[in-house]
């Protein structure tokens, strides 16, 4: 009766990634909801302001980004709640696989199933708001670089509010203020490009943010998950 001594983070990441992606594929309906939500919110803005093409082109990046924020927020509930309810989460905390790896894999799967689709449908936003090809390109790159940060920061909030009655509202209150820098640099990138300043600075800051969040947030998320059980 001996225990296996070492489990690497790669094993944990791949386990969580494979499992959560398969779960996501099996419940495609849920995936569609967040995506549809994004498109509906985006479409509401022209109706609430006015359809002046020049105005729409100016506000498009901001609207795309705010909608991405909200869609991510909507999908965050799914990240830990189901696993919490059916007891899988406690098995994850007790697993010999390293928890930061499991959490990292789950967040990655969450991003692939919610953030990445947003990037892929963003050309629709460009059509609706009359964005040019260059602007669309920058918007897509900014979403590609920035939405992982949204998933990673959101995971901390989701872990902190785990199992609480007011969780959805509380999650929004905790997470949205933290999203401000991502929003600024994400939407700012497109605007900077449009005004001829070049989006390089914004985009590299977003990339740096993703790297930084990738290093720091799993620790906070794991701590928050353990706190929820202790």
């Amino acid at each position: 009766m001996t225990e296996r001594e070492f489990f690497g983070p790669g094993e944990a990441i791949s386990w969580a990634l494979r499992r959560d992606l398969r779960l996501a594929l099996r419940s495609r309906g849920e995936l569609g909801v967040a995506l549809l939500f994004f498109l509906i919110v985006v479409s509401l803005f022209p109706l609430s302001v006015n359809p002046d093409p020049k105005l729409l082109r100016t506000i498009a990046p901001g609207i795309a980004w705010v909608s991405a924020l909200l869609a991510t927020l909507l999908a965050l509930g799914r990240l830990f709640n189901n696993d919490y309810a059916d007891g899988t989460l406690e098995q994850m905390l007790l697993s010999p696989l390293p928890l930061p790896g499991i959490v990292g894999g789950k967040v990655l799967a969450h991003w692939i199933s919610t953030g990445l689709p947003l990037v892929l449908v963003s050309p629709l936003v460009a059509v609706q708001f009359g964005l040019g090809g260059g602007e669309l390109g920058v918007l897509m790159v900014s979403l590609l670089l920035g939405t992982p940060i949204l998933s990673m920061l959101g995971a901390i909030g989701a872990a902190l509010t785990l199992g609480l009655r007011a969780a959805p509202v509380l999650l929004a209150l905790l997470v949205l203020p933290l999203y401000v820098p991502v929003l600024i640099f994400g939407a700012g990138a497109v605007e900077a490009h449009a005004s001829g300043l070049g989006a390089g600075g914004h985009l590299s800051l977003l990339a740096a943010g993703t790297l930084l969040a990738g290093l720091a947030t799993p620790w906070a998320t794991c701590t928050a998950l353990r706190i929820a059980y202790e």
Partner: peptide, 26 residues
């Protein structure tokens, strides 16, 4: 306000303390 709301939403004082702490540090 997020810090205060989180702490008041958690009944167990130990969890409230520690969850609030993570949030404040983030």
């Amino acid at each position: 306000l997020g810090f205060i709301a989180l702490q008041s939403a958690i009944e167990d004082p130990r969890r409230a303390d520690r969850a609030g702490a993570v949030l404040a540090l983030v």
